[in-house]
Design a protein around this nucleic acid. Structure first.
Length: 281
DNA sequence: AATTTTTGCAACCGCCAGTTA
DNA sequence: CTAACTGGCGGTTGCAAAAAT
């Protein structure tokens, strides 16, 4: 009955990931796809627990991630969704392709909260702040602290609690309309990953949030991303297009091309974490 | 220029629900 | 049926970089 524990914590590394560790994890997942996270560190030769590997991958290394600040429209969307869903960051992230719940949560706490307060809006209730709380920043801080005190742990709903039915309807609607909601992100198989060393845009983002990615034009860059013909079809599910793409990627030629491209790039250029992180997407 | 404070974000922690032996 | 495990989530922390003094 008893299974092995997820990871014995003895001797496991913690803290920031090194370029070498990233490389190992990326190479492993490119080769094997996402499988049992518990097994990943051992198989990839990492002294990390599986959970740490999963977080590193989903929040940072995943090739379909956008980098950079949220655009105006994304921010607007986050505010709108937060008013309906509260701190259900993963649900909110499901509506923003290429964004992680962690990223949105951080952005909310560091930028949006302040913005809303400046505008005289309570970031918790999304209602206008009462005059007593808008008079001084300290009051606003206190106000927020009170909110947080009054919110029981685990209760992530905003104080203006939306009708539960509405929330459920929203979530239901989301999963129906968007089969790849991050709650149900399909495992990325090796054949679904494309390394494109040609220098062209691998993941065709239609937003401006990746502007930093083009900043160092001319540098030889590893282009790695899920090479969807149209990003929207990945996130909103155009089944037959996906099938066609999948079958291409599933072909032996497709697989070999992807792995060859990656190893070739590593041979030619070495692995540059900064490029991987910022120059590509 | 040096020091202190603030900010932003990657990563960790603990909990939970679903799954499995 | 039950206990243990896995994967996922939200809250929090720690640290490096930037800004202020």
């Amino acid at each position: 009955m008893a299974r092995q524990p997820c990871c014995d914590k003895v001797g496991l590394k913690k803290g920031p990931w090194t370029a070498e560790e990233d490389k190992k994890l990326i190479t492993f997942i490119l080769t094997n796809g996402q499988c049992c996270w518990r097994a990943v560190p051992k198989l990839a030769g990492l002294l990390r627990c599986g959970k740490s590997c999963r977080l590193r991958w989903t929040n940072y290394l995943r090739p379909d991630l956008k980098r950079g600040l949220l655009s105006e429209s994304e921010e607007k969307m986050v505010i709108d969704l937060h008013s309906q869903l509260g701190n259900r960051w993963s649900k909110i992230a499901a509506h923003l392709p290429g964004r992680t719940d962690n990223e949105i949560k951080n952005h909310w706490n560091t930028h949006i909260k302040k913005k809303l307060k400046k505008m005289g809006i309570d970031p918790v209730t999304h209602q206008p702040l009462s005059s007593s709380t808008t008079t001084a920043a300290t009051d606003a801080q206190h106000h927020e602290a009170e909110h947080e005190k009054n919110t029981s742990p685990g209760d992530n709903s905003p104080n203006v609690v939306p009708q539960e039915a509405q929330v459920e309807a929203e979530v239901k609607c989301t999963t129906e309309a968007d089969p790849f909601c991050t709650d149900e992100v399909p495992m990325i198989e090796p054949h679904e990953m494309v390394v494109d060393p040609r220098g062209g845009a691998a993941a065709s983002s239609t937003t401006s949030s990746s502007s930093s990615s083009s900043a160092k034009a001319g540098e030889s860059q590893l282009q790695c991303g899920i090479e969807w013909q149209d990003q929207s079809m990945y996130f909103f599910g155009v089944d037959d297009q996906l099938l066609a793409w999948d079958s291409f990627c599933s072909s032996e030629d497709g697989k070999l091309a992807q792995l060859d491209a990656f190893t070739q790039y590593q041979r030619d250029h070495g692995f540059d974490q900064e490029s991987w992180k910022f120059e590509l997407f």
